[in-house]
């Protein structure tokens, strides 16, 4: 039985009929064709699929699409402003925080939530915030530096 849900994705209202068992990750990637959000494990271990659900960093692979009914969803595709990288994305590029880039979309969303809640996070705050997002390439150092730089940039 499909259910009609309505949600805003990066500010755009979307109305869709979805199977109750469908995940938010599937809705984004397959129904809306928004493939920026990545599937790394499907069971909430790696954080690659992190999106913001009403502003809260959420594993979209563990969230049913119908749970997002009436919610605001933000994904990596919504970060750049008229095609231009925002300061966080820019810091990731300039500080070498991106190697293979697969964890990047989820990492950026987690960092976005952090910087909204805490304008001046300490290094430990940053490490704690991103501890649910695995990265196998960078050793996290440059990611932490980039988030720190972006926080100082917006100060």
């Amino acid at each position: 039985m499909r259910r009609i849900i309505s949600l805003t994705v990066n500010g755009v209202v979307r109305e869709l009929a979805v199977e109750p068992r469908r995940t938010l990750l599937e809705l984004l990637r397959e129904d809306l064709g928004m493939t920026g959000t990545k599937r790394g494990c499907s069971i909430g271990d790696c954080g690659s699929c992190t999106v913001l659900l009403d502003g809260v960093a959420t594993f979209s692979c563990l969230t049913l699409a119908i749970q997002a009914d009436g919610c605001a969803v933000e994904t990596v595709e919504g970060l750049a402003e008229s095609g231009k990288l925002n300061s966080l994305q820019q810091a990731f590029v300039e500080r070498g925080a991106i190697q293979c880039g697969f964890c990047t979309p989820g990492m950026l969303m987690t960092a976005t939530e952090l910087l909204r809640c805490n304008r001046h996070p300490s290094e430990q705050d940053i490490r704690r915030a991103i501890s649910g997002n695995l990265c196998r390439c960078t050793g996290y150092q440059k990611i932490v530096e980039a988030i720190k730089a972006a926080s100082e940039d917006t100060a």
Partner: peptide, 15 residues
């Protein structure tokens, strides 16, 4: 900076 990092930051790199 890595020459391919811009689309990766935007989420537009197609894996």
């Amino acid at each position: 900076p890595s020459v391919d990092s811009l689309p990766k930051a935007k989420g537009t790199t197609r894996f």
